[in-house]
Nucleic acid binder design. Structure first.
Lengths: 218, 218
DNA sequence: ACCTGAACACCGTTCAAGT
DNA sequence: ACCTGAACACCGTTCAAGT
C-alpha cells in the first residue's frame, strides 16, 4: 500500500526530435489561440520539456513562429501547384485554381494565414529560407500569367504587374473572408467560397484577352 | 541647502481626462511597437498614472485596443468621404478616390490598419459602437457603386457584390504593400502608391460599363 | 550536445485601501 | 468617482548546473 509506484517508463532526458515536436505542438496551439497568444512556455509544456529547452532549437519565440510561417508558405505553394497541375494547358483555369487554393488555405488555417501575412514577423530576412519559400507562390503566379499570354488567352502586358493585381484581389477576398468582414446576411450566399468564386470570376474577366472565349465551367 | 524643494505643481490626484490621455498615449505606442507589443502598463506610465488606473476607463486591454480601432475606422470613413466630395458627379472618380484613401491610410498608419483588420480583436461585437463605425466605409462604397449604376457609368448588377469585389481588390493591395510583400525591385516604380494606382486602374476597367468612355485623368 | 531549475525583468488583472 | 500599491499568476529570456 505505502510502497512507491514503479518508476514506469520515464521520459528520456534527451527528447530525440524536440525541434519537430515543438513545431507540431506550436501548430496546434496556433490555431487554437492565435500567434499573439501563443506561449513558448506552453508549447514546451505540451512537448513535455522544460520552458528553457526550446532555446536549444530556436533562438527566440519569433524564430519558432517563423518556422511555422515557413511551413504555411510551403503548403500554400504546394496547394497552388496542385491547382496548376489539375488544369493542364488551361492557364485561365490554372489561375482560377490557384486563387481558390489561396482562399481555401486562409479559411482552413486562419491563424496560420494571419501569421504569414499580418505583420507578426517584423521581417522575413533574418529567418533563413523563409523569404525564398514565401516568394515561391508569387513566382508560380507570374509563370501562369506568362503561360496564358503566350497562348493568347491572357491579355498582353507586364506579367509581373498582372500577377500583382491578381494576387492583390485574391489576397483581399481571402483576408476579408477570414476576418469575417464580409457580411453575407443579405445575400442568399452563406458559403464564403461562393463569394470568393464571384470575385475571382470578375478578376478572370479583367485578365482575359478581349477576344478570348469565356470559360465554360463554374 | 538641505531645505526640501518646494512641492512645485504636483500632478492632481484626479487626472481629469484620463480616458482620452490613455487613447492618445496608446495611439503613439501603437505605431512604434505594433498592437501585439503594446503594453497597458507602459501606456499608463506614459500618461503618468499607476498601472491599475486604466481599469477605471477600460475593462481590459482589448477594450482599449477596440477604442483605437474605432478611431481608425472613423478616420477611414472620413478620408473616403473626402474623396467622394472631391469628385462630385463622377462616380468612377469617386471610386478611385476612395480606393486611394484606403491605401493611403494603410501606408500612413500601418500599425493602426493592422489592428483594424488583422484579427487583433476576436470580435467587434462586444465593443460598443465599433461594429457600426467599422461598417460605415463599406456603406459608402455600396452607395457610390449604386450612384455609378444610376448614371450608367458602372455596369449593372448587385451593387453590394460589386462593392465587395472593389473592397477586396483595394484591401488586397493595401495589405500587401503595407506588409512589404510586393517587391518593387525589378520594376521602375519605387513608390507603393504607383502600384496601388495601377491595380485600382485595372479594377476600374472591370467595374466600368462596357460602353462608357475611359476616364481621362491619372 | 542537449536539457533543467532558478532567476530576472517584465506582463494583464484584481482588490483593498487611500483621496 | 477616481486613483494607488501590493499581490497573483503568468510571460520571454538567460545562465549555471546537471546528464
Amino acid at each position: 500500500m505505502t510502497a512507491p509506484p514503479p518508476p514506469a517508463r520515464k521520459a528520456p532526458y534527451h527528447h530525440g526530435d524536440l525541434k519537430n515536436a515543438l513545431i507540431e505542438a506550436a501548430l496546434a496551439a496556433l490555431e487554437s489561440q492565435g500567434w499573439h497568444a501563443l506561449s513558448l512556455r506552453d508549447v514546451a509544456r505540451q512537448a513535455n520539456v522544460s520552458h528553457a529547452a526550446p532555446y536549444r532549437h530556436f533562438p527566440s519565440k519569433e524564430a519558432l513562429l517563423a518556422a511555422l510561417a515557413e511551413r504555411g508558405f510551403a503548403e500554400l505553394a504546394d496547394d497552388m501547384q496542385r491547382g496548376i497541375d489539375g488544369a493542364p494547358g488551361d492557364p485561365l483555369g490554372q489561375l482560377r485554381a490557384t486563387g481558390r487554393a489561396y482562399v481555401a488555405l486562409a479559411l482552413r488555417r486562419p491563424a496560420l494565414f494571419r501569421l504569414m501575412f499580418s505583420g507578426a514577423l517584423s521581417s522575413y530576412q533574418p529567418h533563413g529560407s523563409l523569404p525564398l519559400v514565401a516568394g515561391k507562390s508569387f513566382l508560380l503566379l507570374v509563370a501562369t500569367v506568362a503561360a496564358g499570354q503566350s497562348t493568347g488567352v491572357v491579355r498582353p502586358g507586364s506579367a509581373e504587374q498582372m500577377a500583382i493585381a491578381a494576387w492583390a484581389t485574391v489576397h483581399g477576398v481571402a483576408t476579408l473572408l477570414l476576418e469575417q468582414q464580409i457580411h453575407l446576411g443579405d445575400s442568399a450566399v452563406a458559403d464564403p467560397m461562393v463569394v470568393a468564386d464571384a470575385v475571382i470570376e470578375r478578376l478572370q474577366q479583367g485578365l482575359a484577352a478581349p477576344g478570348a472565349a469565356a470559360p465554360s465551367n463554374v
